[in-house]
Design a protein around this nucleic acid. Structure first.
Length: 468
RNA sequence: GCUCCCUUCGUCUAGAGGCCUAGGACGGAGCCCUCUCAAGGCUUAAACACCGGUUCGAAUCCGGUAGGGAGCGCCA
């Protein structure tokens, strides 16, 4: 039997970290077993579903490079099929029309709550034989009233529910549209889903779905309920706390491989291993290693992983992404400086590509003012001589390269009888405008002879004219 | 309220009755390296929610307590 999993988001918002993790586990499980991964858009709630959200889900999945083998399927395009199955259930006596008004339902509910009971439909229309005129009925599933339904969850183990805890849920609304618990069953059945991997919040729905499968004479799929993901503060994930679109991570300068690697370790582990290639994730992924308890997102760890992938990633590929970020902060990197070289120079001091872009600004455009603290310390009358000396020696270099520049710096240091820092730091502030940059020889090489000398001259002139 | 689920360092986690003086990772602290910032190396503090039971022996099994979460829609 080939394994078939599905990711079935409802398009009522963007794809966030929790959804992405669910999708990842479904995708990994399918890949691991050489099965199929199906994407299904659960858009039966026409009020809240939007095409923008559908697109956002596609974008997020594409960015994270999780491709579906089948789909995307849209439930709104399968209404005929749901009607057919509802009819089947009705004919077999597994479902019935319910004419209760919302007011009536509300009253039942209030009474139950007053009696400290769990609110549920009391099944009063089960035995109704005549329609109520002028009322468009809903269709309810006739849930077994006795016995138990057991969910053999691959993560939780055996979970037993009393059938009398489950009420007769509505499967078709009065406007003839199907509801979630019904469409899921029909789809999982039709799409031959073998493993339903989804969020913990669906565990309570599972016995109802199993009962519908049973009524249809079908075998339910296997289930695996994943623990929730919490915000950094341990509170429920909300828009204020980490529940941002995965595409926001791109904008913030994260690499998809970092996000994926971060996500895979949320609720799953393979011994002590932290860094996984895609191939390793696929090879090692196993539901038995999925945790039961909820986990909080840790932004620092994501940052660490992101930097790891920046440091170890292909500079040429990263260069393209850096270009995108530079453009976003208004820099058009069309000059002679190769982005891949900037990536190499900045990788170990950038946790995100956004940081890298910002820290690399001075490579691509002139700065207006010196960082006051850095200039205060390094562009002074005391450093003037060393700056001048360095400038003269630099100008005499034959081949403008980091090793040659490095030799010049060392010669200058020897000639002046000072430490390297005394020479390098003023140069750094002169050419970058601030106190932070990649190693000075590399920085100068990247900047080029013309730009480096010009900025050195500018700094020397600035000091001579009284530092203003 | 009712039903169901969960509980190891601050966080992610290892741990399948003796391998546990509870391991790794992020973050923290300290040291080293160093032209800045980093990166890197080394060291270090830090947890089995609680109470009972089973057992020669429990983080691991059982029961209870506490705390947290989810569900209880003509939402998904």
């Amino acid at each position: 039997m080939t394994i078939r999993t599905r990711f079935a988001p409802s398009p009522t918002g963007y794809l966030h970290i929790g959804g992405a993790r669910t999708a990842l586990f479904c995708w990994l499980y399918a890949r691991h077993h050489r099965g199929q991964f199906i994407l299904r858009i659960e858009d039966t709630d026409r009020e809240r579903s939007t095409s923008e959200a559908v697109q956002a889900i596609f974008d997020g999945m594409a960015w994270l490079d999780m491709r579906e083998d089948e789909g995307p399927f849209f439930q709104t395009q399968r209404f005929e099929r749901y009607r057919e199955v509802a009819r089947q259930l009705l004919d077999a006596g597994h479902a019935y029309h319910c004419y209760c008004s919302k007011e009536e339902l509300e009253q039942i509910r209030n009474e139950q709550l007053a009696r400290r009971q769990k609110p549920r439909y009391d099944g009063r229309c089960r035995t109704r034989s005549t329609p109520r005129v002028g009322v468009r009925p809903v269709i309810r599933f006739k849930n077994p009233q006795i016995g138990q339904t057991t969910v053999n969850d691959l993560v939780r183990g055996q979970v037993v529910f009393e059938n009398n805890e489950l009420d007769d849920l509505i499967i078709v609304r009065s406007d003839d549209t199907p509801t979630y618990n019904f469409t899921v069953v029909v789809d999982d059945l039709d799409m031959r889903i073998t493993h339903v991997i989804r969020g913990d919040d669906h565990l309570n729905n599972t016995p109802r779905q199993i009962n519908i499968f049973n009524a249809l004479g079908a075998k339910p799929p296997e289930y695996a309920h994943l623990p929730m993901i919490l915000g950094p503060d341990g509170a429920k994930l909300s828009k204020r706390h980490g529940a941002v679109s995965v595409m926001q991570y791109r904008e913030d300068g994260y690499l998809p491989e970092a996000v994926i690697n971060y996500l895979v370790r949320l609720g799953w582990s393979h011994g002590d291993q932290e860094i996984f290639t895609r191939e390793e994730m696929i090879r090692f992924f196993n539901i038995a290693d999925v945790n039961k308890s909820a986990s909080a997102v840790n932004p620092d760890k994501l940052l660490w992983l992101n930097q790891h992938y920046i440091k170890t990633g292909d500079p040429d590929r990263l260069a393209a992404e850096l270009g995108w970020h530079l453009t976003r902060i208004g820099i058009t990197a069309t000059g002679a400086i190769k982005l891949a070289a900037v990536v190499r120079a900045q990788a170990e001091r950038s946790r995100t590509l956004k940081e890298m872009a910002e820290a690399s600004r001075f490579f691509f455009e002139e700065f207006t003012d010196y960082d006051s603290k850095a200039a205060e310390k390094n562009l002074t009358f005391e450093t003037l001589a060393s700056l001048h000396e360095t400038r003269v020696r630099l100008a005499a270099i034959g081949e403008w390269s980091a090793p040659a520049i490095h030799r010049v710096l060392e010669d200058t240091v020897a000639a002046l009888g000072v430490k390297l820092g005394k020479v390098a730091q003023p140069v750094r502030v002169a050419v970058s405008g601030g106190g932070v940059s990649p190693p000075i020889d590399i920085t100068l090489e990247l900047l080029g002879r013309e730009c480096s000398l010009r900025r050195l001259d500018r700094a020397i002139g600035w000091i001579e004219k009284g530092r203003c």
